[in-house]
C-alpha cells in the first residue's frame, strides 16, 4: 500500500503548479501509469480522495491511463507488446528484452481554471 505516498507526491506536485501558475481550481489530474509499476489504480483513487478531502483539490478528478508493457528485443530489434509479463520475443524467441513501456508513473496533464 504505497499508493498513499504516491498520492501525496501527486498532490504536492499539483499544488506547486497551482501556486506557480496562479490557478483557481484544478478540475482534473491525468496520470499515466505503467502496468508493471505495481500501483493499483483503485487504491490510488482512494488515497487521492482521502488526502484531498477538505483541500482545494477536493473536487478534482483523478484520471488514470494504464500503459501496457512493451518490449524491444535486443537480439532482432523487434518491438512488441508484452502479454502476461512474458518477456520473450515473439519473432526470434530471445529473452534479452529491453522494456520500452510499462514503468510510467507520471502526471501527464491537468485541467484547470485561472
Amino acid at each position: 500500500m504505497h499508493e498513499l505516498s504516491i498520492a501525496s507526491s501527486i498532490v504536492k506536485t499539483v499544488l506547486e503548479e497551482v501556486k506557480n501558475r496562479n490557478l483557481k481550481t484544478v478540475t482534473l489530474v491525468s496520470m499515466r501509469i505503467g502496468a508493471l509499476t505495481d500501483v493499483v489504480p483503485d487504491s490510488l483513487q482512494f488515497g487521492f480522495e482521502a488526502i484531498t478531502k477538505d483541500t482545494i483539490l477536493a473536487k478534482t478528478d483523478l484520471h488514470i491511463e494504464t500503459i501496457s508493457v512493451k518490449g524491444c528485443c535486443n537480439n532482432c530489434q523487434h518491438n512488441f507488446e508484452v502479454f502476461e509479463f512474458v518477456f520473450i520475443c515473439p519473432n526470434c524467441e530471445s529473452n534479452d528484452i529491453k522494456m520500452s513501456h510499462g514503468n510510467e508513473l507520471e502526471i501527464a496533464y491537468i485541467e484547470a481554471e485561472d
Binding site: 507526491s9 507520471e106 502526471i107 496533464y109
Partner: peptide, 15 residues
C-alpha cells in the same frame, strides 16, 4: 472551459 496544462512530470522525480 478549463485549460489543459501539460505537466509531463514523474511522480517520484524527487526520489
Amino acid at each position: 472551459m478549463p485549460d489543459k496544462i501539460a505537466i509531463e512530470k514523474k511522480v517520484l522525480s524527487e526520489n
